[in-house]
């Protein structure tokens, strides 16, 4: 009856959620909504309150203030009623190291009430999905990081939960495995499972349908990745690949200060590259080339690129200070 063909229903509804640990405010009145079936990215640097929020949504931690409805149930009073419809993969690797892959899955499945044929089918499905066929009798420490990650994900979605919470699932995993992991997430999402995922990898955030940025306990932006970028990054990015990034940055900063770079909004160092945010990309690009040539700074490339989430995030964070 709640279902609406045009608008997907809301599965998580958070209003003014706050958590204090003594005098320390870990989460400071955040509000957001998550729709059924989406991949919702919860972004923020380490220690910004991501895990605390997840723990509150799972009913592991009582909020100090505010409300949160998960699947239309108050998390504080009715958490047990919805637990069987939630999945959780925590930051730590949480399978039992001395139990085999199969035994771990059996335990998780039964704990969520699966049995008989359904249990067997789901385990088969997870083994195939995680590419662990034939390794059922090995213990997790024998598997490599990527495999362990997929196994943990498999355990979390074994019971086909409505929502699965993933707390930094790809921390410490190589890029190739991360890629494979996200492919799995798409697959799971396509089957109708809502995915609530925290991360501090910006490239991963680009894969999400909706995002919320949390910084020092407070939300500083939310929306679809594209919306966030257009809202907070008015313009394009000129990317310079200099030979000596430090001196080039100094030159460009001087140039901007004296107004020689036109409407350049922001200059930032990105690893070995420099990003300049601007409304008029082509003009700025030309001026940058002139400035660098004039100063005798050498560079390999000066390109105009679409802005990334990382650009947006850095700008947002700078705006906070």
């Amino acid at each position: 009856m709640m279902r609406n063909n045009n608008h997907r229903d809301t599965v998580i509804e958070v209003k003014g959620l706050k958590k204090l640990f003594g005098s320390f405010t870990a989460v400071d009145g955040v509000s957001f909504e998550v729709k059924r079936g989406e991949i919702f990215g919860f972004l923020g640097p380490n220690g910004s309150g991501k895990t605390t929020t997840i723990r509150m949504l799972l009913g592991l931690l009582p909020p100090s203030e505010g409300t949160a409805l998960v699947l239309q149930h108050d998390i504080q009073r009715q958490s047990r009623m919805i637990r069987s419809r939630l999945g959780y993969m925590s930051q730590k690797f949480t399978l039992y190291n001395d139990l085999t892959v199969e035994e771990n899955l059996l335990f998780y499945g039964r704990a969520y009430g699966l049995r008989n044929k359904r249990l067997k089918d789901r385990i088969q499905y997870v083994l195939e999905m995680a590419d662990l066929k034939g390794r059922e009798h090995e213990t997790p420490p024998k598997l490599s990081g990527g495999w362990r990650q997929r196994l943990a994900l498999g355990a979390a979605i074994l019971h086909e939960p409505d929502i699965v919470f993933l707390d930094e699932p790809t921390a410490g995993v190589d890029p190739l495995s991360r890629r494979a992991f996200w492919d799995l997430l798409y697959e799971i999402s396509a089957q109708g499972t809502t995915i609530f995922v925290t991360t501090h990898y910006m490239d991963e955030a680009e894969h999400c349908e909706n995002l919320a940025f949390i910084y020092y306990g407070g939300l500083i932006a939310q929306g679809a990745p594209g919306d966030i970028k257009t809202e907070h990054l008015p313009g394009d990015v000129v990317q310079i690949t200099p030979v000596n990034a430090t001196s080039a940055l100094a030159v460009l900063n001087d140039a901007q200060a004296s107004g020689m770079l036109g409407d350049a909004l922001d200059i930032n160092l990105y690893g070995a590259q420099i990003h300049i945010l601007t409304h008029q990309a082509e003009t700025t690009r030309q001026r940058v080339i002139d400035t660098l040539d004039h100063a005798g700074e050498r560079y390999s490339d000066v390109d105009v690129i679409p802005p990334s989430l990382e650009d947006a995030f850095i700008r947002l964070v700078q705006a906070q200070h």
Partner: peptide, 14 residues
């Protein structure tokens, strides 16, 4: 100690 306790707690078990 191993952090698996939390998993038990989010499971639908009393």
């Amino acid at each position: 100690e191993y952090g698996t306790f939390e998993q038990l707690l989010v499971m639908p078990m009393r």
